[in-house]
Design a protein around this nucleic acid. Structure first.
Length: 198
DNA sequence: CGTTGGATCTTCT
DNA sequence: GAAGATCCAACGC
């Protein structure tokens, strides 16, 4: 089943990030169906989190959708090249989000290989947030899209459970500028999964 | 195997 | 005008 609004609109963004592990991200973009199991996520805890785009209640044209009720996509461009896919969580005016960082390919693998211009399946196909977005066809133009219906992008629960002892928490990647907040254990991933960045 | 640097462009100062 | 929630090919060891 597609994850409902009640899943996304809870208070605890870290719990949501942890529970997204094992769920399936599905896209139908340019008429092509692709999917993959989520194996790595990061939580961004809104106005008090220095690593978040919404730190200090900052609102810009780009970050505005983070202030919408949970259940939307937040996609933005990083380093001018990479489209990073996030899920908006919590209630309206509380700009929490979860970055999807790693995916284990399930369906549409030939399509993903074509989009990444690769000839064979290796973990680099969908390891890392920029790579997985490219493989699934996600672009910044999809920012603000609802994940609650069977549209271009949604997230499903297919009954896959990740055992608690297979989930590891650690510090987030690439946010050294956030000072003490860079040390928070807001990154979650599946232990020993090849599609998690080492 | 570890390190380095180039690609590329939106966003905010 | 500078920096950024990155990736990977090309090196040197």
């Amino acid at each position: 089943m597609i994850l409902p609004a009640s899943f996304y609109r809870r208070q605890d963004v870290c719990a949501i990030a942890r529970e997204l592990l094992g769920k399936v991200l599905v896209t139908t973009i340019d008429g092509l169906y692709t999917s993959g199991k989520i194996v790595e996520t990061e939580a961004y805890a809104g106005v008090a989190d220095k690593a978040s785009h919404a730190f200090g209640n900052k609102k810009t044209a780009r970050t505005a959708i983070m202030y919408a009720p949970g259940g939307l996509a937040y996609v933005y461009l990083c380093y001018g090249i990479h489209h990073l896919f996030n899920v908006v969580t919590n209630q309206a005016q509380i700009p929490h989000a979860v970055l999807i960082r790693g995916l284990e390919p399930l369906e549409g693998i030939p399509v993903m290989l074509e989009r990444r211009k690769k000839s064979k399946l290796t973990p680099t196909l969908t390891t890392g947030p920029g790579s997985l977005s490219a493989a699934l066809g996600i672009k910044t133009s999809y920012s603000g899209l609802s994940l609650l219906e069977r549209g271009a992008i949604y997230i499903e629960d297919r009954g896959t459970k990740v055992a608690r002892h297979h989930i590891v928490a650690g510090s987030r990647i690439g946010i050294a500028y956030a000072g003490a907040d860079a040390l928070l254990p807001y990154r979650f991933f599946v232990r020993d999964n090849p599609y998690v960045r080492r």
